[in-house]
Design a protein around this nucleic acid. Structure first.
Length: 351
DNA sequence: AACGCTGGCAACCGCGGGAGG
DNA sequence: ACCTCCCGCGGTTGCCAGCGT
């Protein structure tokens, strides 16, 4: 049984708002406020609209000091950095951009920024020779598209959470669920990449071990490392040959150890290499039904399942959500909060 | 000029969580 | 402790203008 509708849908107008409706809503709220009850508001005004629709219209369009379009370079940077940091928490991002609404930012990200950033990453990624020897070099291949999409997301999350946040799930192996050897190998590769990182521009866990809060970061300047990462991704045209399989004693990640940026790219190449091989039937073989279920992710990568591709991202997303859910405000995102977040994980995985 | 395609944006939908009874 | 109501959020949908063929 579903939730009761918030209003009588049959008697409620939907679709674009007319100027008359806008005027009535605006005039009423400016004079009386919302009265703390959006559901009752439309009846008071005599609008045949759902209360939620009124709220949305007010917040996203009629509210004073709303800016539409014309995002500045600085705003772009803030959005990018915050998206990398916290994901699609548009309300939090909007809170850092006066005059911008979450809906506006969300649309802007989905329609422009994402393409601008990830599109260029894809370009540089393919320039790295990933597909050069593969039959899947055809970009129209849905598997390729899907892999890239999932891995881009994976890359963004790993970049921030695995490397940047000392309290993150990925910084505490004891919290990790049991992994398949292939998954472990990828994680180990990641760790090695991180351990070998000396480049000062690379996202370093130590950077966040200071007492600097997120608020301070935001108020001073956008996190530069994240920006650098994107800039690098957009400009890196260096080609790195990729072994089609991850070597047993892989030191592939050390080839470019002078550059942490390259190391992240290399990780993606490792994953891509695996996926490529797996698509060719060379990936791991599940040895039991349990493994089949447990490692559906890998299996379905080959089978082109979008949902399963998000497996990793969703799991490591949890720590950010835990952090954010403990407070909706960035102001309290301190080390202490991170510790609480850490405890959340411990609790979750000990259950 | 007509048609189809694409991108941008406004609005809707459903869910989770908090507040209050 | 439980239930109900409402708010706020993120994801998704649908419309429409602009563009290319």
């Amino acid at each position: 049984m579903g939730r009761a509708p918030c209003c009588d849908k049959a008697n409620v107008k939907k679709g674009p708002w007319s100027p008359e409706e806008d005027a009535r809503l605006k005039a009423y709220i400016e004079e009386h406020g919302t009265g703390g009850n959006w559901i009752a508001l439309p009846q008071k005004i005599g609008l045949k609209r759902c209360g939620k629709s009124c709220r949305l219209r007010w917040l996203n369009y009629l509210r004073p000091n709303i800016k539409h379009g014309g995002f500045s370079e600085e705003e772009d940077n803030i959005i990018c950095n915050l998206y990398i940091s916290i994901g699609s928490r548009w309300s939090v991002i909007a809170a850092q951009l006066p005059g911008r609404t979450d809906n506006d930012i969300k649309n802007y990200w989905n329609t422009r920024l994402k393409k601008k950033l990830l599109g260029k990453r894809k370009q540089s990624h393919s320039n790295n020779g990933i597909n050069s020897s593969s039959s899947s070099s055809n970009n129209d291949d849905p598997k390729e598209v899907l892999s890239n999409s999932a891995l881009e997301r994976l890359q963004l999350h790993m970049q921030l959470q695995g490397f940047q946040n000392p309290f993150s799930f990925y910084s505490h192996p004891q919290l990790w669920p049991k992994l398949h050897p292939m998954q472990e190998k990828i994680v180990q590769t990641l760790q090695s990449l991180n351990n070998n990182t000396q480049n000062p521009h690379f996202l370093n866990p130590n950077d966040l071990q200071s007492t600097t809060t997120n608020t301070q970061l935001l108020q001073s300047q956008p996190p530069k490392a994240a920006t650098d990462f994107f800039i690098h991704q957009q400009t890196n045209t260096n080609s790195i040959s990729l072994p089609s399989k991850i070597p047993e004693n892989s030191d592939h990640h050390q080839v470019e150890s002078s550059s942490g940026h390259h190391q992240v790219s290399n990780f993606m190449q490792v994953v891509d290499g695996f996926l490529e091989d797996h698509n060719k039937g060379e990936g791991f073989m599940a040895q039991s039904d349990e493994q089949v279920a447990e490692f559906d992710w890998f299996k379905e990568v080959g089978g082109c399942s979008k949902n399963s591709l998000i497996w990793w991202g969703q799991n490591n997303e949890h720590d950010m959500r835990s952090a954010a859910s403990s407070s909706n405000s960035w102001d309290s995102s301190s080390v202490l909060q991170s510790e609480l977040m850490f405890q959340d994980f411990e609790l979750g995985y000990n259950l």
